[in-house]
Structure formats: C-alpha cells, structure tokens
Amino acid sequence: MDIDRPSDPQVSVVSSDGTMFHTTLKSILLSGTIKDMIEHIGEGGVENMGAIPLQNVDSKTLEIVIKWIEHHKDNIQPTSEEIKDKTADFIDPWDENFLEMDLDKLYNLITAANYLNIPQLLWLSTRKIAMLIKNRTPQEIRSLFNIEDDWTPQEIEAVQKENQWCEEK
C-alpha cells in the first residue's frame, strides 16, 4: 500500500459518457468507493493503473464532484458514522456557494455522492434538499420538485386525521 506517500500522483477518472478527468490521488481518496478500488489493486498499482471508469456518474456531475473533492482534499473528513449524529452544524461559506445549483444537478450530485461514498458531500447535498422542503406546504413542494399528486382526497383526509394527533417527541 502506497497511498500515504508524500508526493501526490495524478489520477484519471472516466465518466459514464466517456469524458476523462484528471485529478490527484489525495483528492480522489475522499471517495470511499475509489479508495476501496485502489486498496484492492495492491502493490505499486497506483501509477500504472490507468483511468478509473465510473459507470454511474456522467461528465457534468463528475466535474462538480471533482471541484468539491479538490477543494476539500486537505480537510479531515468525517466518517458516515460521525455524520449520522451531525445535525445543523455550521456550513462553510464555500460549500454554501458551491451548492447553489439547479435541482437536476443537485439530484445527480446526491446520487453520485452516494455511489462514490463521500459522506460529507452526501450530507451537504441532502441537507440542502431538506432545507428546501422545510417550512413549505405539500403543494409548494410538489411544484418545486415537479412531483405528481397521486393521493385521493379520501386518503389525504385519513392521513391528516392521524397527523392531527402526532407531535414532536
């Protein structure tokens, strides 16, 4: 295993639609999935392994992800276990700015962060969506996310009657 060497070799990744991106080993290791891949290659593989294919991430999304991991490569990343207890913690203004994107991109970012297993990025992006859902009516949420209403009035009424008796624990 040669991951911890001081020099930071170049690594290439290929998106699902065939675009190649270059980044550094240190940044790409933020992804748990790729870290596992590289660990399995074993001795001396890093230099000679060639481009890493990522079938589930398209080029636009991969570009965004790489921008994020390169910015955060020197920060200590929390594990997914630590993330679970993390709630409304302080968000870095850079991240706040970074997340200003349309919903389609955000959707792709969430699935990519999940596939690549980057807990901090997944936390940031899902939390962003949660902030959008917060304090809105169902109709507002539907039109925001373009979701169709598949409830019948009777069903909605029944659920609301139950909800009336529910409160925060």
């Binding site: 709630t87 409304a88 919903l103 389609d104 959707y107 792709n108 969430i110 699935t111 999940n114 997944l122 899902t126 939390r127 969506i129 949660a130 902030m131 859902i133 917060k134 304090n135 809105r136 009516t137 169902p138 949420i141 539907r142 996310f145 373009n146 979701i147 169709e148 209403d149 598949d150 409830w151 909605i156 659920v159 609301q160 909800n163 529910c166 409160e167 925060e168 624990k169």
Partner: peptide
C-alpha cells in the same frame, strides 16, 4: 432526475433532517 423517484435510502437521508411537522408535510407530497 426526479426527486419523487430518488432511491429510498437517499430520501431517508434527506428526511432525517426534518422535524415532525415538516416530515408529515413531506409525507403528504406523494
């Protein structure tokens, strides 16, 4: 991309940040 059909585990990820009232509202969406 459609958030209605986001994989369930990711929806759960999103919903865990909501409080009870918002969670109920989200439940009424679809």
């Amino acid at each position: 991309p459609n958030f209605e059909w986001l994989p369930m585990e990711l929806l759960i990820h999103i919903f865990q940040y909501l409080n009870t009232r918002d969670l109920q509202t989200a439940g009424l969406v679809c």
